[in-house]
């Protein structure tokens, strides 16, 4: 029975998501949202004021616990803050996935002697009051249900979306700063320019090892332009050949798409790649191997040489507009 749940995240959207997951869980009586505050900034990286956090979880959380120690979000500080907040007894802690959240979850699970599950898509309660976690397993080969037979449980939620609510802000309770027995000093910090948004793109054209050399990727450019699409790729293209930066990688180790159209060019469709395109509405593929797994995992398939099909597609699109 998860009567008291503490939720926390590195950004406001993530916090809403885990707060909603906690609020809608059977038997939950109290949801407390923990926010690490900096000087007057909470929640890295999407800096927001405490009031904003309180508004974001309005109707979902009973209270916002504001803990100094944020600014540059550190998993060790975060874990210590959560551990102190859990001191009165807690049944579950829900966190939204992020590098620092993984550290916080790992540390907290040891500190509390908790059961720990990552990549949670959905959490429910079984007849005995144990938490059941739905998540993808074995790199996306199957959907698994994990039973967390120990209380408290620490659940790390996969990224997801959550609508904003219209409710009164949650009350804010100030807490003391947690202590960590070592320093992690920031020496330098560089903002990374994000030029690629695969998860948010409406159309994605992805290239795989069916392209024989780096120069050949230029063939796909007119198609990307004609479809007003984002360019994606399979792992060999990004990691083995390094023809494209890793931010263009689609799949388990890269991004997951939610596009209306996903067009796979010369991609075989291994499970690790397919995992990233489950959210696509329509999947089309160009592949000259009728036995490639992508054939069973696409809506439309052209079984032919991509070097011939791509120019024909560009022509067909040009003629159509």
């Amino acid at each position: 029975m998860a009567a008291r749940v503490i939720v926390s995240a590195a950004d406001v959207a993530g916090l809403r998501r885990v707060a909603e997951a906690a609020r809608t869980l059977d038997g939950v009586e109290r949801v407390e949202a923990l926010a690490l505050t900096g000087d007057d900034v909470v929640l890295a990286p999407a800096a927001a004021a405490v009031d904003e956090v309180a508004t974001a979880v309005g109707g979902l959380a009973d209270v916002v616990l504001a803990c100094p120690g944020g600014g540059a979000l550190r998993g060790d500080v975060w874990a210590a803050a959560l551990q102190e907040a859990a001191a009165g007894g807690v049944d579950a802690v829900f966190l939204a996935d992020a590098p620092a959240a993984r550290e916080a979850a790992g540390r907290l699970s040891i500190a509390l002697g908790a059961a720990c599950a990552s990549m949670c898509d959905e959490v429910t309660v079984d007849g005995d009051g144990a938490l059941l976690v739905r998540r993808s397993v074995y790199g996306g080969v199957a959907a698994g249900t994990l039973r967390l037979g120990r209380s408290p449980a620490v659940c790390l939620f996969a990224a997801g979306v959550c609508e904003a609510a219209e409710a009164a802000p949650a009350p804010i309770e100030q807490r003391a700063a947690p202590a960590v027995p070592w320093d992690v000093v920031i020496v330098a910090e560089d903002t990374v320019e994000k030029t690629v948004d695969l998860p948010g793109a409406r159309r994605v054209v992805s290239v795989g090892r069916g392209f024989q050399k780096a120069d050949d990727l230029a063939l796909a450019q007119p198609l990307v332009a004609a479809l007003d699409a984002e360019l994606g790729c399979s792992r060999p293209i990004a990691e083995d050949f390094k023809w494209l930066p890793k931010e263009r990688l689609v799949g388990l180790t890269g991004s997951s798409v939610t596009a209306d159209l996903y067009l796979a060019l010369g991609i075989s469709g291994q499970v690790q790649h397919l995992t990233g395109i489950k959210g696509a509405r329509v999947v089309a593929a160009v592949n000259n191997d009728p036995k490639a797994p992508i054939v069973r995992n696409a809506d439309y398939i052209i079984q032919a040489d991509l070097y011939k099909v791509i120019p024909a597609l560009v022509a067909a699109l040009g003629g159509a507009s």
Partner: peptide, 16 residues
């Protein structure tokens, strides 16, 4: 840690 695999199902998305 008290975590056990309680069930498995297909994760395939039905395509046309």
């Amino acid at each position: 840690g008290g975590v056990e695999l309680a069930g498995l199902g297909s994760s395939a998305v039905e395509r046309k």
